[in-house]
Design a protein around this nucleic acid. Sequence first.
DNA 1: TATTTATTTCAATACAAATTAAACAATCTA
DNA 2: TAGATTGTTTAATTTGTATTGAAATAAATA
Lengths: 186, 186
Amino acid sequence: MSEQEDLQRLEEARDVMISALAQTMVIYGVTPSVGRIYGVLYFSEEPMNLGDIQEAVAMSKASVSNGLRELLETEMVIKVWKKGDRKDYYIAEKDFMKNFINFFVKQLRQERSLIVKGNQQALPVLEEISEHGEGEAKKQADQDLANIERSMSYFEWTMRLANAMESGEIFDYLPPNKEKKDGKHG
Amino acid sequence: MSEQEDLQRLEEARDVMISALAQTMVIYGVTPSVGRIYGVLYFSEEPMNLGDIQEAVAMSKASVSNGLRELLETEMVIKVWKKGDRKDYYIAEKDFMKNFINFFVKQLRQERSLIVKGNQQALPVLEEISEHGEGEAKKQADQDLANIERSMSYFEWTMRLANAMESGEIFDYLPPNKEKKDGKHG
DNA sequence: TATTTATTTCAATACAAATTAAACAATCTA
DNA sequence: TAGATTGTTTAATTTGTATTGAAATAAATA
């Protein structure tokens, strides 16, 4: 088996893994195309520039540029400089744990923020009716206030979870894996 | 202020909260419309049937039916029976914690499954090239194998997290909130 | 079984998102 | 500064998904 053939088979194997990675990233709110950009960068040993990536994913320059911006914003991709080169180069953040925590913490906070904003708008009305209202109206207002209180206690929990992840405290409870003992390396 | 006016203001306040809830649910992978269905059910004291819901959200019967099915599948909504009534009635699962854990655990497992499937396809090729290949091909294969190993250890962690959530063990580390001490109830 | 009522399926439409080509802006080089 | 190279923004197209009305199906009663 020639090395040329090996490289060919290797590329096919990578394509499978990149596709899986791209699909997965849909979960993280990006399109499969953007996921493919990340996948290509993930498996590249070298930093890649816009042209390289464009060639690898077969997309337009504009799409690649937009996709990269998105990936940079969420810190899943990092921009690097090569001295003496005008082009921008990019590498993937390969630490899935970091990516996951980044994403997840942001999501939890956004969720809380949305609900709290809604509740804050409603709260004065509900409290007033609960205090001065009567009959069905008061009953419903009290019910809504109870709902809000329950949800606030839920969000206190998710915020503690988010903080524990961000600070790394979570790993005190749920430690990351130690190295494999039977690992066949090299 | 008449009770009629109070009920009017109450409905407006609820609309705000329902909109926020609907927006939030987009994070959980449903459309805003489906989110609105959940929101309406969340704030309803009574179980609602398809017709009730349709009226409240101003959508077609078909959309409501599809939306409900989606919400039932993810267990965010529960079907209940009223005896002597042919219609189906629905209530929202109001426990955000339960909804969150349901969703999150499913997502983590799906993510792992996707990647593992991709890796399993690639693994034989990579291992063969790593053992018998030469030069650049072998170097790249080894690199990919190292990537796979790192990712597997990440997934071991997320699976432990998922299990801890599902079993409730997570609450040993990160307890849910106790009741408020200064709570003004009734 | 016929008849009413509730729910789902399906084909057509409307809507939203992704992708692109082309124009534009910025940066370097000579 | 002109000319060339790289990167971004815009507006238009394409593609895909959500939503709907109408028809079919299923369920319940009499």
